[in-house]
C-alpha cells in the first residue's frame, strides 16, 4: 500500500510556524515550501504550503494525523498495483503527447 496524503489548506493556515507534522514524522515524508518568492522581503510563513512528498517512504504510523491541531491531515492508502496502473497510464499519455 502507498500513502495518499491530503492537506486541507483551509484548516492548515500556518504550517511553517506550527510544524508539528514536519517535526514528528519518523520518515521525513513532508515538505513545506514557499508558494511565493518576493524581492526584498522574506516570504510570509502563511504563504508556505505543506505536502506529502516522499509518499513511498510513509509507513502509515499516523503520527502526523494525531499531532495536527486543526485536523487538516488526511492520510489514506491505496494498493500499490492500483497506483502503479494509474501512473503507467499517465506516462503513456505523456509519451503520446510528446510524439504527437
Amino acid at each position: 500500500m502507498i500513502a495518499q496524503i491530503k492537506i486541507n489548506f483551509d484548516l492548515c493556515k500556518d504550517p511553517l510556524l506550527c510544524r508539528r507534522c514536519l517535526s514528528v514524522c519518523p520518515s521525513v515524508v513532508f515538505v513545506c515550501g514557499p508558494t511565493k518568492i518576493w524581492k526584498g522581503r522574506e516570504t510570509d510563513p502563511q504563504e508556505y504550503r505543506i505536502f506529502g512528498r516522499y509518499l513511498d517512504k510513509c509507513s502509515g504510523c499516523g503520527d502526523c494525523v494525531k499531532v495536527c491541531p486543526t485536523g487538516a491531515v488526511d492520510l489514506g492508502f491505496l494498493p500499490k498495483e492500483q497506483l502503479a496502473k494509474r501512473y503507467q497510464e499517465e506516462r503513456i499519455a505523456q509519451l503520446n503527447e510528446r510524439n504527437s
Binding site: V31, C32, I37
Partner: peptide, 14 residues
C-alpha cells in the same frame, strides 16, 4: 515577475 512576488513550487524546495 519575481520582484512582485513570483509563484514558486512549494514541493520543489531543496
Amino acid at each position: 515577475r519575481e520582484a512582485s512576488g513570483a509563484d514558486a513550487d512549494p514541493q520543489a524546495a531543496g
